[in-house]
């Protein structure tokens, strides 16, 4: 046993994979410790269906575990009501966000804000079926901010000028907008993002392109399978 025991830490399971016959290795987003890896021993069997139910992604849970860093051991888990229930497309958006967090967060790197942003996002996701895209875009913006990659949206650094609604821009992820006649995003969309209002279809479309560009940059070429899956779902 260890000196470092954590009790009843608010958390979400991001991903779990089977380990040996009946155990799981979990990627867990905790409130105070950031993303941690937990070994959940002997939870996959008939007797422990309640525990494996708790350990489903998107459930707000309280986890207790011990161990220092690396792979720690889960000692207890309970649900922290109210439950969050995602269905249909919302479920797929949840997978997408989990995949982002899985790859962008470093293990054992505390970031309390991310837990809160994520929790709020899931709560909104289960209620706003019609606004999935807008919710995703604002989640992404907040996530970048929390990771220290906050976007600079209002200043054309190449010309040292403020972004203007009527003009078109290209975007460089770690620097910001550059005016260009062939740019994919309008000044209007950039300023709307800054003000956290996305209304028109065009603005949503451009914002999606922008986020894709930015996340591709930070994911360093890693392809997101949930993105592909969402596309396949819409095609079918």
């Amino acid at each position: 046993m260890s000196d470092h025991a954590i009790y009843l830490e608010p958390a979400f399971v991001l991903h779990s994979r089977a380990y040996r016959e009946s155990s799981l290795i979990l990627d867990v987003l905790t409130q105070r410790l950031g993303k941690v890896s937990l070994l959940a021993k002997a939870v996959k069997n008939k007797k422990n269906t309640e525990i494996s139910a708790c350990l489903q992604p998107f459930n707000p849970i309280l986890v207790s575990f011990y161990g220092n860093t690396g792979l720690r051991v889960l000692s207890d888990v309970e649900l922290e009501p109210p439950k969050i229930l995602l269905e249909g497309k919302a479920l797929y958006c949840g997978f997408y966000v989990n995949e982002l967090l899985k790859y962008l967060l470093h293990t054992d790197d505390p970031c309390p804000e991310i837990y809160l942003i994520y929790r709020r996002f899931l709560e909104q996701l289960q209620e706003n079926f019609d606004n999935l895209e807008t919710l995703l875009r604002f989640f992404e913006l907040q996530l970048l901010e929390a990771l220290g990659y906050g976007l600079q949206l209002t200043h054309d650094f190449s010309q040292d000028k403020a972004v203007v609604s009527e003009k078109k821009y290209h975007f460089i992820p770690d620097r910001g907008p550059v005016e260009s006649k062939q740019g994919f995003i309008s000044g209007d969309t950039l300023l709307s993002l800054q003000n956290k209002v996305l209304k028109s279809r065009q603005a949503l479309f451009e914002a999606k392109k922008l986020m894709r560009l930015v996340f591709d940059f930070y994911l360093q070429g890693r392809q997101l399978r949930s993105r592909t899956l969402i596309k396949q779902l819409y095609q079918s």
Partner: peptide, 15 residues
């Protein structure tokens, strides 16, 4: 009845 099972059911349901 896991999140992946639900997602799968949704996908096949759409098919």
């Amino acid at each position: 009845s896991t999140v992946e099972g639900e997602a799968t059911a949704h996908f096949v349901g759409e098919l």
